[in-house]
């Protein structure tokens, strides 16, 4: 277990008066609408299991009402799960007492929220230091730490401002700094950038990528924006009606959509930006095919490989991470992916 930073098994959330009694009954296989009509219960999250590796950026994606925001709250028990377990490393979060849980929230998991959730009566520096104050650190320590975080997210000079004097993007940087201040092992993001306009959103996404490189935290990132999911995620979990529809690397999602729902979803995505050569190559007809041609790794993204393949007359060989010859691509294979998008 310990190789996962976060491990979720058979997690359920059912909203309603007798939710607990419902677990394990066949009623839960009904559609949402039927269940609501029959017993007044609503399924928020349905039998979800996954693992997040240390240092991984794990994205949960779905449309509104898919249960993704409920899921992220179950992970820190801001909403109590109806059934299932959540392990944080070796310890079971779902078995903790209130007090232990508070300790986890204070030191191990932090969260960034969609609407920032900054306290309007506190200055930026005191908002950033709020978590430290809560866990009882003295003023000098928390001021110093908060100042570091403010600098880290690029807000130096705004320490004495109040939240409502900042733009949306800056407010979310404060939210980010607050989450980082307690130096948690895991950062959770609940649609942190949906309230921001597109340009600022792109900046903030780059900021997250930068921070991930710098501090290397494990991240669980909730979004309804596929482009954002593809951009940030090492792996993506797609949810619908509280269920997992598909889970995999971005190129797996684009290259092999699990069903029509996902296929429809990904139809607008520029495939050449996501797909790797693995998804466009074909089996070599013989171990000697294209001998002497340049070799590219199978994890190279099509867009990046395009120039090399097109510049070379004829086939290009594709090798896996061990250097073994696994396939070939030609201009035709590349163009099919690139041109298909323009039509």
């Amino acid at each position: 277990m310990a190789e996962s930073a976060l491990s979720v098994r058979n997690l359920w959330k059912v909203f309603g008066p007798d939710a607990e009694k419902l677990i394990g009954t066949p009623d839960l296989q009904l559609s949402r609408k039927d269940l609501l009509a029959k017993s007044g219960h609503v399924i928020g999250v349905k039998d979800v299991s996954f693992d997040v590796a240390p240092g991984e950026v794990f994205v949960v994606m779905g449309l509104s009402g898919s249960g993704k925001s409920t899921l992220v709250r179950l992970l820190t028990r801001l909403i109590e799960p109806t059934a299932g377990t959540v392990h944080l490393g070796d310890t079971e979060l779902t078995a903790m007492s209130e007090e232990q849980l508070r300790e986890v929230r204070r030191r191990q998991i932090s969260m960034v929220f969609q609407h920032f959730g900054l306290l309007p009566h506190r200055k930026v520096i005191d908002n950033v230091g709020f978590g430290l104050e809560i866990r009882g650190e003295d003023k000098t320590t928390r001021r110093a730490r908060a100042q570091n975080m403010v600098d880290l997210v690029g807000l130096s000079g705004y320490e004495q401002n109040f939240p409502d004097q900042l733009s949306g993007g800056m407010q979310q940087r404060v939210g980010l700094a607050r989450a980082l201040a307690s130096d948690p092992e895991i950062l959770m993001f609940d649609e942190p950038f949906s309230a921001l306009d597109p340009l600022i959103r792109r900046d903030m996404q780059n900021e997250v990528i930068r921070l991930h490189h710098e501090v290397g935290k494990t991240m669980v990132f909730i979004t309804h924006d596929l482009a954002e999911a593809l951009k940030l995620g090492d792996r993506i979990l797609i949810m619908r009606d509280g269920e997992i529809i598909q889970m995999g690397r971005p190129d797996e999602i684009i290259g092999a959509p699990a069903d029509d729902y996902v296929k429809d979803f990904v139809s607008d995505v520029p495939k050449s930006h996501v797909l790797t050569l693995r998804w466009v190559m074909r089996e070599p007809s013989s171990p000697d095919e294209g001998a002497g041609a340049p070799a590219l790794k199978d994890s190279t993204i099509v867009r990046d490989a395009a120039r090399a393949v097109l510049a070379h007359d004829g086939l290009v060989r594709v090798v896996d991470e061990h250097g073994a010859f696994v396939g070939v691509v030609d201009d035709e294979d590349i163009l099919r992916v690139v041109v298909a998008e323009d039509s």
Partner: peptide, 20 residues
């Protein structure tokens, strides 16, 4: 939402009352 955010930082109910 404010309560939820500050809960996520691990506050006690007493801290919630006094600080939020």
């Amino acid at each position: 939402a404010m309560i939820e955010v500050t809960n996520s930082l691990g506050q006690t109910s007493w801290q919630r009352l006094l600080k939020v």
